[in-house]
Design a protein around this nucleic acid. Structure first.
Lengths: 344, 344
DNA sequence: CTAAAATGGGCAATCGATTGCATTTTAGTG
DNA sequence: CACTAAAATGCAATCGATTGCCCATTTTAG
């Protein structure tokens, strides 16, 4: 394999000018004549010149890469956020580098380290469920590089973040169930008390309260919210003296598990037990009945995060005041919670 | 924001030695005494030294980054492959940079360019559906950097690739349906004739032939294989004088669309129409009935691709002979095609 | 017709780590 | 104690692009 690497020096030599001129010509610097620019461009073309961004990055101290850290890229929510980020970032000639932590704390710390060493210009992250210690993120700020958290976030950290109003989402979901006539609504929440789940729970609780319904501990089931957890939680609920007439799950997978169990036991959904889930994953519209969900406007979340990054990176020198953007979630009503079709 | 950047020179100064020694000490070079190494490590720690990989990359000409190009990261198949790649790559201190093309040709070309300029050490890619011209990939090889294609690939290109035996997958799926008693099996294929779909179709055809069933053009429906396409294709099939008693869809989403239509029309699955789909996306086990699928061993595919990369990158100088790895797909039988439960 | 301004480029340092080769230090041997 | 091999470290060039500052022509203005 021949790796004929063309550099600006090669171009310069060919034209009997210096590398500086070539560099400027390529960047359309005003101090270079049209003639020279054209000549340079032509030779660059002929020699198949490819700029070495590494060299440039070293010199100017910027890599034009945004590091993105997500627990996993295969959840529609996260990949949509990434897409939202790319949409904005690409317009400003930034590229993204996506890293997955698989919700593993060590891997998350290592990833931050790696991105820092790769000299990314900023990091947009959603931390894992295990993450309780945020020193690694603090380090990012100390190094003076923009950090934006999304979805899952942490208030102690003085960084920008864009989240959705989990409280409102929880409230809306619960209120909807109440309006559908449900009176004994259960809730699946995460055992790990990260804020998004606490907020969803709070919304659930407030809604009950507002509508004069009792809040009952036995109806709140903690788990990891995966499919099997949802199954177990549902089975647990079915053992109660009085079973619930609705379940609001803080995750789509959890709701899916519940749905499976209900179908296996021939309990009709939504007539006997109505279901609403957080996270509008695509598969939720494929189930039978289709799951009502709380949509998180993931794409918009990515847009917002990227936008903040751009602002933050340009206002570099001055002290940037961390921004906090809270998006409103949207309730998407599908068959799993629709008891009165006319009200839709 | 203070960006106190510690370099090896700072460490050197502190210890009255040279940067070379520090560099070697940090890399555990045998020519450096234990004492010095310890001292360097200590100071590095104290000064919170973070190596600048960009500088190193410029010098040694390697970035230790593998670029991954996928149409979209939010399909379970692709994200599993990525995970498989990471698994292997991380062990050898490589990081991955995931880029999505959204099946857009221009974006794919631009992405290759960007990765090349970012000086990645290798590219592992699955090209988009639109891609017919492979010059951008050819360029990668010309630059002497390893390129491995997976899943979707192209024979003209003399590069390594790891694919599954789409033919076998198509054959197995069809054979299974025949064994379940189906005699009039339809097939959803992609309108764009990329090889994976051609192979699946070929497998379907061979199976019919082998079992003495007629191949009928009217039973092969071309589309883009998304959810709505599946719906349309199914509706089209239902208009035939004699409707099929099974559908083998080349994509999971296509099968999902068909399933929806069948349920809406109260046509029982699998009794009246059995279904099998390619791609074992997680949601396929959530549907009702659960979809039988052909699993592509995505994680293993990623492992293999990364493995090839490593081999290729180490045998750098000698001419590397492109490897071709073909994985065997696995048929996962679920309710959507199980007419005789006992045979499972 | 001349000084000042504009125009077009060149020089050389720089970014931070790496590495072949040279040099110094240490240890070992007779 | 001198001498040499081995061990430990220093020197300086290098990777490729960028950029502040300086220099030489031209052009413009007065």
């Amino acid at each position: 394999m021949k790796k004929e690497k063309t550099t600006i020096h090669d171009i310069a030599r060919k034209l009997n000018i210096t590398a500086s001129t070539v560099s400027r010509a390529l960047k359309d610097h005003p101090r270079i004549s049209m003639e020279t620019k054209k000549a340079v461009l032509k030779v660059a073309q002929k020699l198949n010149y490819q700029p070495n961004h590494i060299a440039a990055a070293l010199r100017v101290g910027r890599s034009n890469i945004i590091g993105i850290i997500v627990p996993t890229a295969d959840r529609s929510f996260f990949s949509s956020v990434v897409r939202g980020i790319e949409e904005i970032a690409n317009q400003s000639r930034y590229h993204v580098m996506i890293c997955q932590t698989y919700d593993n704390y060590e891997k998350e710390v290592a990833t931050v380290e790696a991105l820092l060493n790769a000299r990314v210009d900023g990091i947009i992250a959603s931390h894992g469920k295990e993450t309780l210690n945020f020193d690694h993120f603090r380090k990012v700020k100390e190094r003076g590089i923009p950090l934006i958290l999304f979805d899952r976030s942490n208030d102690e950290l003085e960084v920008s973040h864009v989240v959705i109003d989990d409280y409102l989402g929880g409230y809306k979901a619960t209120e909807h169930l109440i309006q559908q006539g449900c009176r004994r609504i259960a809730h699946f929440t995460n055992a790990r008390k990260i804020s998004i789940y606490k907020e969803r729970l709070r919304g659930y609780r407030e809604a009950l309260l507002n509508y004069g319904l009792p809040f009952s501990e036995e109806l709140v089931v903690e788990s990891n919210l995966q499919l099997d957890d949802g199954r177990n939680s549902m089975e647990q609920l079915l053992k109660l003296k009085v079973i619930p007439d609705a379940v609001f799950s803080a995750s789509a997978y959890g709701a899916m598990g519940a749905l499976q169990v209900l179908k296996e036991k021939k309990i009709s959904v939504p007539e006997q037990v109505a279901l609403v889930a957080f996270s509008n994953e695509p598969f939720t519209s494929f189930t039978d009945p289709a799951l009502s969900t709380v949509d998180q406007h993931s794409m918009r979340m990515g847009n917002a995060a990227a936008q903040i990054f751009l602002e933050e990176v340009t206002s570099e020198n001055e002290k940037f005041i961390p921004q906090k953007i809270v998006l409103k979630p949207e309730l998407i009503v599908r068959a799993s919670s629709l008891r009165k079709p006319n009200e839709s």
